[in-house]
């Protein structure tokens, strides 16, 4: 019976090498171990210099996204056994610059995310004395799915358009824009749509659909983008046919 499995990990130490290299590690193949456990085992027992991000170990924080045999996964939710007899090739998420080993630079993603104003935008705040903004369960259901996003960026690694068009705002940012657009307390849809209907927005997406396949939280960003396209196209025709309307 197989007792160990080999991990081929992409290493990149900018002070040491100009190109990434692969390094192999043999780790115990335990039934209850996920790839993140194996990385922690390597860090603790075999090679303390290995760098990677992780935090919660339970699919909530979105820090431990990496490529496993070419597919973007949350390493805390991907069992070693799935890949037996191995080896497992572990690489940083593609479509992002690499800072070191398995750590990517996410600053571009954060910039894109901020452009979407992922918070409740109000034209006028209602005074505290009026109490909270009320919401029915049906109104919650409208956006709840899109609110499950943990910003793990697996969808950015899966999306071929993100790779081809670095300016594309990308699946998670657009799904999060929808999360607030569909929230009855929000009034910022117009501002978000202004950005999203133009270059680098929703129409860059060609509905490959990989973002929804890799999403660990079933957010379905591809669906969110298609819904946005339908709404924006309807708006476009409306402004063409009824130019005197609400512009």
């Amino acid at each position: 019976m197989q007792t160990t499995i080999s991990l081929e990990i992409q290493r990149y130490r900018p002070e040491q090498e100009s190109e990434p290299v692969y390094q192999s590690y043999e780790v115990p193949l335990r039934k209850d171990w996920v790839i993140l456990d194996a990385l922690n085992y390597i860090k603790d027992n075999l090679d303390g210099s290995l760098s990677y991000r992780w935090s919660c170990r339970m699919g909530v924080c979105g820090s431990c996204g990496m490529m496993a045999n070419g597919t973007p996964v949350l390493t805390c939710a991907t069992f070693l056994e799935t890949y037996a007899p191995g080896p497992i090739r572990v690489e940083p998420l593609i479509n992002f610059p690499v800072i070191r080993d398995l750590i990517i630079d996410m600053s571009e993603f954060i910039t894109k995310l901020k452009q979407m104003k992922p918070w409740i935008v109000r034209e006028e705040e209602q005074p505290l004395s009026d109490g909270e903004y009320l919401q029915t369960p049906d109104q919650l259901t409208e956006y709840k799915q899109y609110s499950m996003c943990i910003n793990c960026m697996l969808c950015y690694a899966a999306c071929p358009i993100v790779g081809l068009e670095p300016g594309f705002l990308g699946p998670a940012a657009i799904a999060l824009a929808q999360r607030y657009n569909f929230d009855n307390r929000d009034q910022g849809k117009k501002q978000r749509t202004e950005i999203l209907k133009e270059d680098n927005g929703i129409y860059e997406c060609t509905f490959v659909g990989e973002c929804s396949i890799v999403c660990p939280k079933s957010v379905d960003p591809a669906g969110a983008i298609q819904r946005y396209k339908v709404a924006a196209a309807a708006e476009w025709w409306k402004s063409l046919l009824l130019p005197w309307g609400n512009r």
């Binding site: 452009q115 202004e194 950005i195 209907k197 133009e198 270059d199 680098n200 129409y203 396209k229 924006a232 196209a233 708006e235 476009w236 025709w237």
Partner: peptide, 14 residues
């Protein structure tokens, strides 16, 4: 990040 008015919605709706 305002850019030209895009005609993409037209092609996409067709």
């Amino acid at each position: 990040m305002k850019t030209r008015k895009s005609i993409d919605p037209f092609w996409w709706s067709l």
